[in-house]
Design a protein around this nucleic acid. Structure first.
Length: 208
DNA sequence: TAGTTGATCGTCT
DNA sequence: GACGATCAACTAA
């Protein structure tokens, strides 16, 4: 399939969360930042399944912080963590369900010099595949902060486009990273062998 | 290469 | 008052 910059429609996000998570791999995220346009390919995500998933922010119901996760699919939920980092999620399913997909790693495609500036990295550490290979690094490289919480992904400031969906054979799954509850579920999805993943793949997965 | 640690603060208990 | 969907710098070997 040829690369397409056609915006993904609302209906894309209203489907079951694990379906959306897999289908996000290979799609492009396009961010308008001042006069610059930053683009990247989604290569790693995690699904968070609403009020029944103990690892989800919405597990204990609706609060001021997680409110956006209960909006209609196709919005961006951004939260602040560890006192210094932001992470971004794509809200999925219909309003009120509290589901979302965490964007864990992006392969930079366009606007790489701007991303380097935003990440404030020295030349030695500025290899493109290190710019957004983690949820907080991605937010920094794409200038996503508290201000972007609640952004409609069908608008112009941040949107997702068709890109080139990953083939089924390229997609791998694993447990989610950095959580303590609900860790047994395999809800992390990533593109096999991609250089911009947040973790190196194990040579012999051994059932993990 | 693997493992440990400090930074730093909003949110919920 | 504890902890977290993290990261970078550091240590040891």
């Amino acid at each position: 399939m040829a690369l397409s910059y056609k915006k993904l429609p609302r209906s894309f996000y209203l489907r079951p969360t694990t379906i959306v998570a897999r289908d996000l791999l290979g799609r492009y995220i396009v961010r308008k930042h001042g006069r610059k346009r930053l683009t990247g390919k989604i290569v790693e995500v995690e699904a968070y399944l609403g009020t029944h998933d103990p690892a989800s922010h919405t597990y204990r119901g609706r609060t001021n912080r997680n409110d956006v996760m209960f909006w209609e699919g196709g919005h961006l939920y951004v939260y602040f963590t560890y006192g210094m980092h932001f992470c971004a999620n794509v809200v999925t399913e219909k309003a009120g369900t509290g589901h979302a997909v965490l964007l864990r790693a992006i392969e930079p495609v366009g606007g790489i010099e701007t991303m380097r500036r935003l990440r404030r990295l020295q030349k030695e550490r500025s290899s493109a595949h290190l710019l957004a290979n983690g949820p907080a690094k991605f937010c920094q490289a794409f200038a996503i902060t508290r201000t972007e919480n609640g952004t409609d992904l069908l608008g112009n400031s941040i949107c997702l486009t068709e890109g080139i969906p990953a083939r089924r054979k390229e997609i791998r799954t694993s447990r989610r990273i950095g959580i303590s509850r609900g860790k047994e579920k395999r809800l992390r999805f990533f593109v096999a062998g991609n250089a911009s993943l947040s973790r190196r793949e194990r040579r012999h997965p051994a059932g993990k």
